[in-house]
Design a protein around this nucleic acid. Structure first.
Lengths: 340, 340
DNA sequence: TACTTTTGTTTAAACGATTAAACAACGAGC
DNA sequence: GCTCGTTGTTTAATCGTTTAAACAAAAGTA
């Protein structure tokens, strides 16, 4: 790689000190610098196509204008959509984003954090895996700014942006109940992540408030690196009489995609044989014959908010902000049983 | 943010110079350094939880171990899958990835490149937008390593990893022809990108080699920031008699997703009323009632290869490597017309 | 005229690492 | 005892910026 033009090069060409060049190019000491020299410096900078070496600048200023983003898996649409929103929002304030995928693995996430710390990121936006409390303590110990996205850890005094999972699940199940379903199951992840537990609680809460049966067997939990197979057995069980469910709530878009595949394969009639509501949708669901009723997360707002909270922390606003946004329930055919 | 431990801190604590600490921690001057002191330095480094300030190291060594990745849109599954593969492959060699989305816009891409250059990335992996020849010249002028992914520009002496688009389209259309289709349309992007033009050429080549009609009106080109609407009118035209097509080739997974939505909405019978083949699939297509026949790009190999080519260039292997990989045609129901 | 201020610019240290070169102490060889 | 080579460590420059402080010259004030 050809060597880049430095302040020194400009200084030499104009015949001044690098300090003066730096002052001019950063618009500092305005009024103290002769207009003629300033203009000459600016012209030469442009002529030589100068641009700052951010590495050097960062070393001096201890600021990299870089945000570390740790998601579960960047190839997952939820993560990548978020990444795009964060990228755009960060760019507005001249920040760039370095990312890494943790695969819901606390150890991997810890490694990533350290790699990014060595690179002196100014702060983090993190979707922590389960059991990451000590990583939170670690980051707090270093006093490095960070904001959680999607996930939250009760009892930990940390900023986060997520949705109101209890309410979302509650509304979804209530909707199913309102539409005549009584035997309602849920397919979710086996996980100790509080956002997922809240979804389960919301599901149970709605059933309980409406005096409906809560059956252990109707809550199916699959592994996080979930495979179609696990979903298949879960469904085999949910749909086998006796104890067959009439409706099911999916805990994520990936789960519902797998579920819909099963449903397609076994020619189950939605919503008449089985009513469905899901957390999030995917491109996939738009192709399902019965448009999917789903909980819609305000991803755009969430991504922008989480970025801006982090930027505010950079500006020394050290308050803790914990936001659990409300979601909309988008009603499609998949949950609207044909009246008899 | 709490100040990080530096070499100086270790040096002071152990009572040696920073140089010695640096040598020890980098395993240099082995055999020259007393084992006792070396051990003491290592212990203290661990005790103080030292880790390198990459920014300082980069400034001195002029190497950031960072790869700039410019994709069309990180929230698009093709890009994000690729990003994940590149992330993993780069991590194996201790590189991190900074990304940006160009939105197929050459100007945006140019800005991104400069932002990443200021951050001293060691090289780029880029899916250039159309009309980016001068950006290629720009990068070559600075002698900064870069490799193109997915896209290529004939006549430019640049490394790239992509697929053999002509062959892929040719095989897809041949498959349709072999299955009895004669009136075959194509839905693609309006673009001067050579990879897309090659797809069109492959489509035309196959038709021509089999002495089939090539109708201008059967090639529908939609804008890149494509919307469902454009696809709808394209399909309205393709499927209106006279001149109705029997089969269609989609130029990308996004296009086919939109197309499948249309097909669902209008209750078109696939493959009997319309046979379909697509470039790439998505989660979406797996939910379509007729499993989608599609051209499968070897994304994993491509991502790994492009990363490794770049890493090789870093190691002063300055050869140009241009790879157009072969694709597989995955045959599903969507193209297999029921024999009469 | 002799000061203080203002204006315009330079000096030099610093950020945290790397690394060639210098240096000191010691043992070996003759 | 003198030189030389080896071993172990330090010195100091450097990467490209930033920035407080110093400085010099010109302008203002009394």
């Amino acid at each position: 790689m050809r060597k880049k033009i430095s302040l020194k090069d400009i200084a030499k060409k104009v015949g001044v000190s690098t300090a003066l060049v730096s002052y001019v190019l950063n618009n500092q000491k305005e009024g103290r610098i002769s207009k003629i020299v300033a203009q000459k410096i600016r012209d030469t900078a442009k002529e030589l196509n100068y641009s700052t070496n951010q590495i050097a600048k960062s070393l001096k200023t201890n600021k990299t204008y870089t945000i570390g983003l740790i998601v579960s898996d960047i190839s997952n649409p939820f993560s990548s959509s978020l990444a795009r929103i964060i990228e755009d929002e960060a760019a507005k304030s001249d920040y760039t984003v370095i990312f890494g995928s943790s695969d819901e693995n606390a150890e991997r996430s810890f490694k990533l954090i350290n790699v990014l710390l060595d690179r002196q990121v100014d702060g983090f936006i993190i979707a922590f895996a389960a059991d990451s409390e000590q990583q939170i303590n670690y980051l707090q110990g270093m006093e490095i700014p960070f904001v959680l996205i999607d996930r939250y850890f009760p009892g930990m005094n940390v900023s986060h942006v997520a949705i109101n999972n209890y309410r979302a699940a509650y509304m979804a199940v209530k909707h199913l109940i309102d539409n005549g379903n009584k035997r309602i199951g849920m397919v979710t992840y086996k996980s100790t992540l509080v956002n997922l537990l809240d979804r389960k609680k919301g599901y149970i809460g709605a059933l309980s408030d409406h005096n409906l049966l809560i059956e252990e067997d109707w809550i199916k939990e699959v592994g996080i690196g979930n495979n179609q197979e696990e979903i298949e057995t879960a469904f085999d069980q949910l749909l086998s009489s006796p104890g067959k469910v009439e409706a099911v709530l999916f805990g994520s878009n990936i789960l519902s995609t797998h579920g819909l595949k099963y449903i397609n394969k076994h020619h189950i009639k939605v919503p008449d044989d089985l009513a469905i509501v899901s957390f999030d949708q995917s491109d996939a669901s738009s192709l399902f014959y019965a448009p999917l009723t789903h909980i819609k997360q305000p991803l755009e707002e969430m991504g922008q908010l989480v970025t801006n909270i982090l930027l505010q922390v950079f500006d020394k606003n050290r308050e803790i902000t914990q936001v659990n946004m409300d979601t909309d329930l988008i009603i499609g055919q998949s949950s609207l049983r044909t009246p008899l």
